[in-house]
Amino acid sequence: MLRIAIQAKGRLNEQSIGLLSEAGIGVAESKRKLISRADGFPMKVLYLRDDDIPQAVAMGVADLGIVGLNEVAEKNFPVERTMDLGFGSCRISLAVDRTADYNGLDYFRGKRVATSYPNILARFFAEKGIDAEIHTIKGSVEIAPAVGMSDAIFDIVSSGDTLISNGLVEVEKVFYSKAVLIANPKLDEQKRRETAQLTFRFNSILESRGMKYVLMNLPQEKLDEAITILPGMRSPTVLPLAQEGWCSIHAVICESQLWERIERLKALGAEGILVLTLENMIR
């Protein structure tokens, strides 16, 4: 039975539980729980702090973990990055006081920079040849310049609203992060099979996002032109209608291309067009 670690609370908790739910795996709420049994898959769920998840997976306390790539890079424990999960996107950036005369990375030479990600920042400064003081802070990093603890910060940025409210401005985007599934590199054969089953479910969900299932009726004489417009898993599905000279076409279209392609198909004479949400797509 697999043991998967997820964030006990915070920005990735709800999205992790939501992904598991879409995969047919029921998970109990994490309130006052450290571990619970999942429904719909042979799995136990561990609720941990996000910065503890890479270590737990590396030690074998958990077989798998859902965690931000930033924590994997910061802790640098020996884990396998199994797949990207399509949510939790953010970046870690350098920010300075909005009144500062910022003129490039040389600004940070000899400056004090507060961060919860000292290892990522140290590697970045080393690559750029910047000699700065890195101060590790747990908690509200963005207040450090205001109370005189630092000249700048290196912290997670999503919308940027927190920086603005603290009189800071983002000046260098250093590291881009997203939620990833990580695995212990020493999983036995049985657990690797179970992991493959789990990632199969996850991939089916992720591949269906942003896709629409489209059905329409079309004059048979326009079929060849329509097929050049429509994508498909291999090719569009074509079915004859009871009315002679007409057919029905079924296809999966990326949402970003949907309306442009529908307009082209209508110009060919397509009618009775139905657009349906695609829940899962299994290749």
Rank of each mutant, 00 (worst) to 15 (best):
V252C: 10
R193I: 04
A183L: 05
L187C: 01
R234W: 03
I249H: 00
S159W: 03
K173R: 12
L265C: 07
K222M: 04
F154E: 00
I253C: 02
L187V: 01
E207N: 08
S177F: 14
V171Q: 07
A251D: 00
I253S: 07
K222W: 10
I253D: 02
M216A: 10
T228D: 08
P145E: 00
P145D: 06
L241M: 08
L218Q: 08
K191I: 06
R261S: 14
I153H: 04
A183M: 09
K178W: 00
G269A: 10
R261A: 04
V157F: 06
I137S: 01
S235Q: 14
T237E: 04
E225F: 13
K138G: 13
A196L: 09
I229P: 00
S256T: 03
R201L: 10
N217H: 13
R261M: 12
V171E: 00
A270T: 05
P145I: 03
E260A: 15
A251C: 13
P219S: 07
K222A: 05
T228E: 09
M233V: 14
V252H: 00
A179C: 11
G245Y: 04
I143G: 00
N166L: 03
W246N: 01
K212N: 04
N166P: 13
K178Q: 12
R193G: 15
L187E: 07
L268S: 14
Q220R: 10
Q197F: 15
K178D: 02
K186H: 01
K191E: 11
T136H: 02
G167C: 14
M211Y: 07
V174M: 06
F202A: 01
G139L: 11
L230Q: 04
F175V: 06
G272W: 05
M211C: 04
V214M: 04
E194Q: 13
K212A: 09
E189L: 14
T228A: 07
I227N: 12
S204H: 09
L230R: 00
A226Q: 02
S256Y: 06
G210E: 05
S248G: 11
D155C: 15
S158N: 09
Q190G: 11
G245R: 07
W259H: 12
S248F: 01
I156E: 06
C247F: 08
L168Q: 03
D161V: 15
K138N: 02
W259L: 12
D188N: 12
L181F: 05
P236R: 13
E142N: 14
L268K: 08
G210I: 14
S177D: 09
S235D: 11
N203R: 08
G139N: 08
F200T: 02
